[in-house]
Design a protein around this nucleic acid. Structure first.
Lengths: 157, 157
DNA sequence: CAGAATCGTAATAGCCAGAGTTACGTTTCA
DNA sequence: TGAAACGTAACTCTGGCTATTACGATTCTG
């Protein structure tokens, strides 16, 4: 696995959770994501801290959405994950003594900032409910009343 | 060093090279970048392949720009470096059986594509000559006729 | 022609953050 | 009381850039 797929994973899981009656346990979610419960708890922690989900311990415990999918955007989720940096590239490091180097860094940082703003704008436009709204396969699943079933989880049971 | 700083490094070095009379050796460039000549050759290879710089072996050899800074943008340099991926984040991996997951991935990929386009647009707008054009420290250096001197290199000599 | 100057490149090791695991502690319910 | 769940620390593994070492191939100069 080469990239940070937390945003994708959380978007996926949160949509399922919206159609889950009870709380979803870390174990159940882990099966949807083909991973293990510790990774799930670690990743959900940021969402919990922002109040997007709530966790309950003990039997019948697990994770619940605290708001409808319409009130949560990909940007909200992304920011909750507190990704160190969205870019693999960046300015040169350290104490820059060279004026040319400083200017080059500034130019690159400016470009990255614009790209970052574009990314946030794009993510902010996507409500999690939009993910469901698109796609024929999803419509079909909704028509059958089971958009909460993740085949990954089912297969692993 | 946490990030891929090759673009910043190359932008820095190419500007200096434009004011260098002879060829710049990998060793000289390495001093400007606080690294060693092998890293320089490895990084310059992409630029050489695209014809932005030419290398000559043997005594008096080294690297030369093949065109003025006005005809080279940060985007040109960036593309020459063939960065694996500009983003640390991405869609979830593997054979996605879940329709919700596919839709989530699609939404995220769409946002990343827009950000990527914004980045390329921003990088494409910056000619390497623009890096010199801005900044008072650089103007001062140019007035004194030595914008080719990199303090990093000088300090290490 | 000898020898030094340079580039070209393979092979290694280090670093960093996310991912995957194991281990253990805490809370909660029946 | 004991099982179900979350919380979290501590490792290991992985991929890409970086740093180094080691050699080989060219090319100029005396």
């Amino acid at each position: 696995m080469s990239k940070d797929s937390r945003l994708a994973r959380m978007a996926h899981v949160l949509v399922h959770m919206a159609f889950n009656d009870g709380a979803a346990t870390s174990d159940t979610i882990a099966r949807m994501l083909n991973t293990n419960p510790v990774v799930v708890r670690r990743t959900m922690a940021g969402l919990r801290d922002r109040g997007y989900v709530a966790s309950e311990k003990g039997p019948r415990g697990g994770w619940r959405l605290t708001r409808p999918l319409e009130n949560l955007t990909l940007l909200d989720v992304h920011q909750a994950l507190e990704t160190a940096s969205v870019f693999t590239i960046g300015p040169s490091d350290g104490h820059v003594a060279c004026a040319v180097e400083r200017m080059a860094n500034r130019a690159i940082t400016g470009a990255l900032n614009r790209a970052s703003a574009a990314l946030e704008a794009a993510l902010g436009q996507v409500r999690l409910s939009d993910i469901l709204a698109e796609g024929q396969a999803l419509r079909a699943a909704m028509d059958q009343g089971r958009p909460h079933q993740c085949p990954n989880a089912v297969a692993a049971q």
